[in-house]
Structure formats: C-alpha cells, structure tokens
Simulated assay, not measured.
Amino acid sequence: MKAMVLHAPAGLDRLVLEDRPDPEDPGAGEIRVRLHGTSLNFHDLGVVTGRMPTADGRVPMADGAGIVEAVGDGVREFAAGDAVVSCFFPDWQAGTATIGDFSRTPGDGMDGFAQDVVVRPATAFTRAPKGYDAVEAATITTAGLTAWRALVVDGKLKAGDTVLLLGTGGVSIWALQLAKLMGARVAITSSSDEKLERARAMGAEYSVNYRAREDWGHAVRDWTNGRGVDHVVEVGGPGTLAQSIEAVRVGGHISLIGVLTGMGGEVPTALLMARQARLQGLIVGSRAEQQDMVRALEAGGVRPVVDRRYPLEQLADAFRHQQTGDHYGKVGVEW
C-alpha cells in the first residue's frame, strides 16, 4: 500500500510517498478501513514542519475517512461497506476531558491517515455523515468537532445568541455553519474583504476587516448595541485575545482553541474580570460528541466548505497552499 511518510529532520520537502506492507486482518474489536480522504489542520502543519516534533518515519494527518473493508470479532457497530471517519482522540470515548497531550493523536503520537489502509479499534471511528464524500467527512474530525464543542457542548449555544468568529479558516467556517444551523447571529473578522463577502453570503450578519479596523472588538460590541457577544471562538491567541475580551458580553463565553499569533502573551486580566466572562481552553472533543455532531449535520443538511483538493502525492503542495492563508474553509487531500 501507499503511505506518505515524514522523515527527519521534518519539513515539507521531507514528505515522501512510500510503499509499505498492507496491515494484517483486524483482530477482536478492530476494523480495517480503506482510506480515501483527509483534511489539513494547523496541528498537522506543525507536525510536518517540525514545530511539533514527532518520530522519524511518522505517517502524518489526524483526519481520515474511508470505507470499512472488514471487521474483527465482537464488532457490531460497523460492517463492511460502511463509511467512517476517524476520531482525533481515539481513547476519549465520552465524558469530560481527560487527555491533555497528543501522545495518542493520529499523525502525531502515532501514525495518521495519509495512507491507503489502516487497522484500528472500531472505537477510533464514528460513522461518517450520510452523503459526505471522504474529504468532506474528514473535515469533522478536528475542525468540525472543535467548532461543535466550542459552541454547542461548552458554550450551550441557543437560538438568538450572538457569536464572534475570527478569520475564515476551517474551524471558523465550520462554526459559522453550526451557529446558523442553531439559529444564532454571527459576526466574523478577516483581513480580506472578498472572504468577508463570502461569509456574509453564508449568513454572517456582521463583518469587520481587522486591518482596516484595529479595534475590531469595539466594532463588534457596537454591532450588539454595546452589550457584547455571547460567544467568541478565539483562534488567534495572545495577539487577538484582548479584542475578543473587549467584544464579549458580561458573563459571556470565550473558547480558546488556537494559538495562531503565538504560544503565550499578556492577558488583560482586569478587563476579563470586569466582563466576568468564562475563558475556556479546549482541544477538539470526544467520540460521543462527534457522534452527536454527525446526527446534527444530517438533520440540518449542512455540508462543509472545502477550498481546494489535492492528490495524496501532492500533500506538501496542499500544506504550502495552507501556509499562504489564501484558503477559505478546509483544504482537502483525496485518493
């Protein structure tokens, strides 16, 4: 079988498509999955560029979707021919978070899904949303479930709430779609007027170019007539957090899910206290939460936004496109 392998020292030019032996038949509790798609995340980029060190010879990519080829003894949830999608934390089945590292995350602490076939525990997958192709399904593993947990699980989003989204990457566009599905009103930021226009076409009620308006937190607060938004999906980190706190209402909720502007920095603690807001860090979600999301997507008829698709042998080019920041939504790879 074919597998994309990352060799040390890590870098995009160190991704090599290699032949590897096919995995053995699934054992008890396992399934064999023929993979057909993955999608790119900031986490994956960190692994393949060496910013997040991994083992030499690692198969990257946390997201994977495909078709079940065989099931082992005791597997009742899946059968051959089922469309499935992977879980970011294969050992976190349900309940509150108990995992704070990536030692068991595919594509980081263990081999990921940039390969033809895998044999894994059945509990490391959920069924894919009906009608989704492999790339579309793969977008829910990391980005989709992060947005779902931020808004629905932790944020307790309800109809009529206001939501602020930063940028137009995979998590933010998924969050836009989920917020609209739930009947919320959305404000969104970007440095691109063209992307903001696309977001408005998808239902965003308010948009602001953060390069044209550096105090975009104030702008969003003005949009809410001074009240502030109920939820912020904060993907930037230290470079944007102060404006997010400015934008949130008293008693609101900020989901800290990204560090695009850095790994550490100052927090305006006095303003955060004054807002009495809940600032919650999170990393993706559990298998049970992914199952809930799949049901919601099917009920609402929501399909992900895939900016561009690449073949597996062009995985490095897909990451280069991601690095430009020109994409809107998700970047996919299919084979």
Rank of each mutant, 00 (worst) to 15 (best):
L145Y: 02
A10D: 06
E136M: 07
V47E: 05
G252D: 07
V33M: 04
G265E: 08
V163I: 12
T105R: 03
H218M: 12
V248H: 07
G252L: 12
A296D: 15
V5S: 03
G325Q: 11
L164A: 04
S103Y: 01
G228T: 13
R278E: 13
R76F: 02
T269Y: 10
T324M: 12
W174E: 03
A62K: 00
V232L: 12
L12P: 10
R309L: 15
E313H: 14
Q290F: 04
T261P: 14
E334Q: 11
A28Q: 10
I31N: 01
V333L: 06
V171K: 01
G262P: 07
G236W: 05
L176K: 02
D111N: 15
D133L: 11
S86M: 08
Q291H: 02
V48P: 15
E30W: 06
G100V: 01
D161L: 07
D222Q: 15
V171D: 02
W335V: 15
A199T: 15
R14Q: 13
A80S: 13
V153S: 09
G74P: 06
V233E: 11
P121Y: 13
E214G: 01
V75K: 01
E30A: 06
Q322V: 04
G281K: 07
K130E: 10
T162I: 04
R308D: 05
L178E: 03
V75Y: 00
Q276R: 14
A159L: 09
H218D: 14
P121Q: 01
D91I: 07
